[in-house]
């Protein structure tokens, strides 16, 4: 089971990393190209909605600007950087990975690691302790059919 978890974690990690790479096809940008970039920006005049879906005038202008920059051959990443430096980091959907903003990623990872560590430590301690025969350990066969026995027990009580 542990191996499965590890493999799965590794795969998910890869998937997450892979998500950042985007292809850039320049020339005349289609609305879909523009939306692809606009989706990664959030518009300060309409809280919580990305620029592709935001119906305000500001966002319409921004989409036009994205179109211009795409036509000029800029990559998605360069466009995002342009918007962040021009209007502030808070127009990005996720804070840029530098300085204090790294905290947004690091703190949850540290918290989860700390929780996992605690979990592991506690489980280790408990299982070690209970290895001593202070509680009557169930024999494997007993455990094995516990489930089926319960179904039958329920049946028994039901008849009465």
């Amino acid at each position: 089971m542990r191996v499965r978890v590890l493999v799965f974690l590794a795969l998910l990690l890869l998937a997450t990393l892979g998500g950042g790479i985007a292809d850039t096809s320049a020339q005349t940008p289609s609305p879909d190209d523009i939306n692809r970039v606009a989706k990664q920006l959030s518009c300060p005049t309409c809280a919580g909605i990305n620029v592709a879906d935001c119906p305000t005038e500001t966002c319409a202008q921004w989409r036009a600007k994205i179109g211009e920059l795409l036509a000029a051959g800029k990559t998605d990443q360069e466009i995002l950087e342009y918007f962040a430096s021009r209007y502030g980091d808070h127009v990005l959907q996720v804070p840029p990975p530098r300085g204090f903003f790294l905290g947004v990623w690091i703190v949850p990872v540290l918290a989860i690691l700390a929780a996992l560590g605690t979990f592991g430590y506690l489980v280790h301690r408990w299982t070690q302790r209970s290895a001593r025969p202070e509680t009557s350990a169930a024999s494997p066969e007993e455990v094995e059919d516990e489930y089926l026995r319960r179904v039958q027990r329920e049946l028994d009580t039901w008849w009465k």
Binding site: Q40, S42, G48, N50, G88, D89, H90, V91, L92, Q93, V94, P95, G99, F100, F101, V104, W105
Partner: peptide
């Protein structure tokens, strides 16, 4: 702490 606004959106 940083004196800067930030948005934490769906990607995070």
């Amino acid at each position: 702490l940083a004196g800067q606004k930030a948005i934490v959106g769906p990607p995070f």
